[in-house]
Design a binder for these strands. Structure first.
Lengths: 218, 218
DNA sequence: CAAGTCAAGATTGCATACAATTTTTGCGTC
DNA sequence: GACGCAAAAATTGTATGCAATCTTGACTTG
């Protein structure tokens, strides 16, 4: 439970990258001992959302542009295959779930404000996770959960505020292809979709980050 | 350190699938408290080598044939892409490391006995991990570490004793393609190679496993 | 004699206490 | 006023103790 609460806060960027997650402080907030906090932090460290330093503590991950590229390279490698599998296995119940997720996304696109943006990033990730679930491979689903979480963090960090984070209708078209069981087309659209997301990022800030990071550590 | 020792023991099948890993017992063996043992077991649980049950304890994973298939499906999806990346980035030092790994493998192929078989499975996995390291994506490397570990467990469980587990020279041919920087060919060979490994397994024991599993739990 | 029940033992889950390390802070000196 | 050093405060790493849960085996009962 604590892990999920922290993960949500990190992905929503309520916890800024670099923030120190003191065991005692987190424990006080949740009214639990450091023991369980440590377990939660260890899990998040495995997911790459938290960076743990020996004898120094845990910090909200601050992915570099290079790490951001690795996240999207990984997704470009894995997700098209997931789309192929999902196209083969998709059923009526799955399609209904997709339609509901899409409706939620489009509703959020109309809203304004930072909380709507957060919800939008989250909903967009859920679409991809739903597809991974339909593909029916638990291991790949776990990988995708990690990649989507890291993507959300990267988008929150490097996303251009102007452009909308994800769906220019991409999700809708991908779902259409899945419904037609056209795995090849779904795969192709998904690949383009990941390109779109990455192009929306501003990964040029490679230099100078080390200094700001030191400042952000508080 | 404890995590690595346990992982090696699991992969080498010195710890049989289903074996209970009691916190107190493991702690006594390593002369540490249950606290650190719990941390190690949590990590292995994340890697899928250990199955943790609430209030019951941790057990060496006993992958079902279906899980085994998912492992190899995942590898079929990811590894060809890694081969492509590795072909682009491979350097002289990498090739030297590959040659050394291959020499070790072929030496092991000549030896007899269960300990040579274990070392062979391990060396075979190291070849794939080396390729992932050369590919230069830390996230994919971590995924591959998990997949290779799980594969080793699956091979130990379902491998036919007759056929040699991995290299019918496959690794050598893949390395040749990498040296020529022929990513497409390396990718194709790797895909076939994974098929070879999976064909060497006997995954038909789907039924009746539940009973044997209950017995193996001790 | 089989089946259900309950108590004793064992094991995990969590909290807390102590040790080790790092960070901060205060003092002295240049 | 700046720098260096040392002591104190804070934080993490590990061990241990107690409570909760599960397992086991004997005992009761139909």
């Amino acid at each position: 439970m604590i892990r999920d609460a922290l993960r949500d806060a990190i992905i929503d960027r309520r916890l800024a990258p670099g923030t120190k997650l003191s065991e005692a402080e987190v424990g006080a907030l949740f009214h639990v001992s450091r023991t369980v906090v440590r377990a939660a932090l260890q899990m998040l460290s495995f997911e790459g959302l938290v960076r743990a330093e020996r004898n120094r503590g845990a910090f909200v991950a601050n992915p570099t542009p290079d790490e951001a590229r690795q996240v999207f390279d990984s997704r470009r490698l894995i997700e098209p295959g997931i789309a192929m599998a999902a196209a083969e296995r998709i059923g009526a119940a799955d399609i209904a779930a997709f339609r509901m997720a899409l409706a939620g996304e489009e509703r959020l696109l109309g809203e304004r404000g930072p909380s709507a943006r957060r919800a939008e990033i989250r909903a967009s990730g859920d679409f991809h996770l739903l597809m991974a679930a339909v593909a029916g491979n638990a291991i790949l689903l776990k990988f995708m959960e990690e990649l989507v979480a890291r993507s959300s963090l990267v988008i929150a960090l490097y996303g251009r505020s102007g452009a909308s984070s994800c769906g220019h209708g991409d999700h809708g078209r991908i779902l259409s292809a899945l419904e037609r069981r056209d795995g090849v087309e779904a795969s192709r659209l998904l690949s383009l979709h990941i390109d779109h997301i990455e192009m929306d990022l501003d990964l040029r800030v490679a230099e100078g980050m080390a200094l700001r990071e030191a400042l952000a550590t508080e």
